[in-house]
Design a protein around this nucleic acid. Structure first.
Lengths: 204, 204
DNA sequence: ACAATAGTTGACTATTTAGTCGAATTGATT
DNA sequence: AATCAATTCGACTAAATAGTCAACTATTGT
């Protein structure tokens, strides 16, 4: 019983947007409440701190993102095509955000991770966990590509780490330079890291 | 005439340390003043804001870093060796910082850039400028490696951007995971991006 | 020695931000 | 339609942070 509300969801949406378009440090609880149209009393009814809200918000948004990644990294798709699709997907998101906010925004997890990683605590843990998930998607694709003889990658986990570093590094450059075109040849770089032969790379 | 002081330098040292071990948003003017042993009145005597201090501090620290980079990227050194030396240099710094602060810290410019890039303004400009400088060091090495037939890189600027993305991405992972060993095979990844032949890579 | 200048100080105000609480309201359940 | 848990609200306090200023001090050049 009792009344129902989507205020919690609104708060989570608001914090995600504010963190992405700004930063953790620059985002205040008042700002979050304003954007979510929720009074501060209600904020503290649902969450005990900005950090706790951020953890729940990232967790929830990651859940829905995973659904898309499951499609992109489907075992039904040839492994190198998964990577191509992933790059296209990312590029589109960045374009949309630039359209929507007038600014390229990069990767929310990676940026937040860089900002809060010296604090320790549940938020930093959650970020680490999400980034590790991303790596494992890549790892599975690399492993299969290796098994199929498309690349030489006896240690797929290590290769995936390299790819993720490159990929997140590019996205952060996109944010810093406010230029989506930095992503232009993401796939090229990843394939170079994998040592994909030109002939394989050309295959659509 | 008048009295002399190194308070300005102390403030710049303090802010660099606080930004690196923490973040821009988490660093307050009071904290900076405490660490530098300078009273707030003096802070505002020298600087008009945290942002202005940060710009001057990054500029100064970059000046001294450039001296080291000029040595590492000396035209007297074979181009691929420059890259090797640069990676070693970076690895040592990260180790020292982990030793000193009990934490791996990554790249101060890149982390700060990711954090403040949506603000626009002189600080973000300064960061962009420094990162572009780094890219040009790499670019010159890539260009020469290409000229010497060590790699195929008809567009050295683009290759340098890729390398920088990978390199900064790794450093940020170092920070997020608090693990310097992520840098273990930095050179390997860079050479893969460059398409260095195994035989060339082996050359010491 | 002393004037001029560069730097220092602490005590102050103003503003922003976090966090609290009790009373009011709403809507699902019975 | 009565109940009551879930939620909302606003007005509050407390704390942290930014920023100001006039008086003070030390150093340097003449």
């Amino acid at each position: 019983m009792g009344r129902v509300s989507d205020a919690k969801t609104r708060l989570m949406d608001a914090v995600l947007e504010l963190l992405w378009t700004g930063s953790y440090g620059s985002t205040t609880i008042d700002q979050i409440c304003d954007k979510a149209q929720v009074k501060k009393g209600s904020f503290y009814y649902f969450f005990e701190s900005k950090a706790e809200l951020a953890v729940e918000a990232f967790e929830a948004s990651w859940q829905s993102k995973q659904a898309e990644l499951d499609r992109i990294f489907s075992p039904m798709v040839p492994p190198l095509d998964r990577i191509r699709k992933y790059c296209d997907f990312t590029y589109k998101i960045q374009q949309d955000m630039k359209e929507k906010y007038g600014r390229a925004l990069g990767c929310p997890q990676f940026c937040l991770g860089a900002e809060v990683s010296t604090l320790e605590g549940p938020l930093q843990k959650k970020i680490q966990q999400i980034l590790d998930c991303k790596r494992r998607y890549l790892e599975s694709a690399v492993r299969e590509a290796h098994a199929q003889g498309l690349v030489h990658a006896p240690d797929p986990a290590a290769k995936a780490r390299m790819i993720l570093a490159y990929y997140e590094g590019l996205l952060t450059q996109v944010r810093i330079q406010n230029d989506v075109e930095v992503l232009r040849d993401t796939v090229g770089g990843i394939f170079a890291l994998l040592g994909v032969k030109e002939t394989e790379a050309a295959t659509a």
